[in-house]
Design a protein around this nucleic acid. Structure first.
Lengths: 190, 190
DNA sequence: CTTGAAGCGGAGGTGTGCCTCCGCTAGAGT
DNA sequence: ACTCTAGCGGAGGCACACCTCCGCTTCAAG
């Protein structure tokens, strides 16, 4: 089941044309900055890259946390949408396709984790939302005898998250390593 | 084969008693700080925790990089020693035992990676040294038919490194996930 | 015990990021 | 076209980390 976390962000988007444009530019710049510099990207730098003044950043996102949450919620929303899209594929195929998209999401997630030590409301909602979206894919694979039964969805996400967070020599190596680990998941059901 | 990277650090250790004590305290404090705060741990904070003035830190480690390298080299040295110790165990057992120690080392490594974008001499030496130590363990497991042959030692390290770098709910979960991924490595040789 | 030099520590100058505040700009409703 | 208000931007005060420099301390060799 998909829960529209993204709407939380959408509802904060200003109505005036210029303001809305700035809002979007800030989110984009922030996503990039978090991917590149992690949790301690400079807010002033984000504003600069978005082509707006620092004041505008603070008006839209009063705290550092608010900015993180918005970028994060946006990403989760996209992830839920993908889960719906792959619903028609074969069980194992659907799961791995979704996991591939999940790895991209992890770039943002890592920065958020770093920044938000304690659990915020949105963070909690996103977690639930994501589990609601991806969990069934995994359970379907288990039911089809394609995934081992002595692990749960959280274990799987942690594994994939970890592997894709490291620096690899090239994409080929990352895919190879991920495939090997997934072989462990596929190992005849126990 | 073990290459004594640690001696590079040992050779920099001052001779005077108080100076040597400070040197050690700084390395300890730095290791802790890097583990806790990553690459951007405050040098002033490290000096404070070590109970020395900031000047003393800079005398021993003129640049941020020098401090990172020393902590890192120390850790690698330890890792090489462990590789020798497990040489007597069964192939698979030896490999996994060493990998367990490797996961601890990763905490330091991650901070170093963050800090040292470009490749330094010591960094290179450490990599070689570590491969010299751990590589044979993996090859022995491959030869014994305990590890798949369509991956190399670097792939394995990346996988383990990634998995152990993520935050887990508890140690049990981390061990479980790591075991599953290693099942993928063990999968009947191809 | 004496003494010289190796080593100590932290004050202080510089840079950078955080966040607030307020005079100015430009969109939207009439 | 006019207005009025939501929204803009960036100057500036504060905090903190980096790194240098130099007068004081303490080790250890003779």
């Amino acid at each position: 089941m998909t829960f529209p976390v993204g709407e939380i962000v959408a509802s904060r988007r200003p109505h005036r044309k210029d303001a809305a444009r700035n809002f979007d530019a800030l989110l984009d710049a922030a996503r990039e900055a978090f991917a590149a510099h992690g949790a301690d990207a400079s807010l002033e730098d984000i504003a600069r890259r978005a082509g707006v003044g620092i004041g505008t950043l603070y008006r839209n996102f009063p705290t550092r946390r608010a900015l993180f949450e918005s970028v994060y919620a946006d990403e989760v929303d996209e992830l839920c949408r993908v889960a719906d899209e792959v619903a028609g594929l074969e069980p194992w195929e659907a799961l791995t396709t979704w996991l591939r998209r999940f790895t991209e999401y992890m770039v943002t997630k890592r920065a958020v984790r770093e920044a938000l030590n304690d659990e915020s409301e949105i963070f909690q909602a996103c977690r639930e939302s994501m589990h609601g979206a991806g969990g069934p894919l995994f359970e379907r694979a288990q039911a089809a005898g394609e995934a081992r039964k002595d692990m749960d969805f959280v274990d799987l996400l942690r594994m994939v998250a970890g592997i894709t967070a490291t620096a690899f020599d090239d994409d080929a190596q990352r895919d190879r390593v991920l495939a090997i680990a997934l072989d462990g998941v596929r190992t005849t059901a126990r």
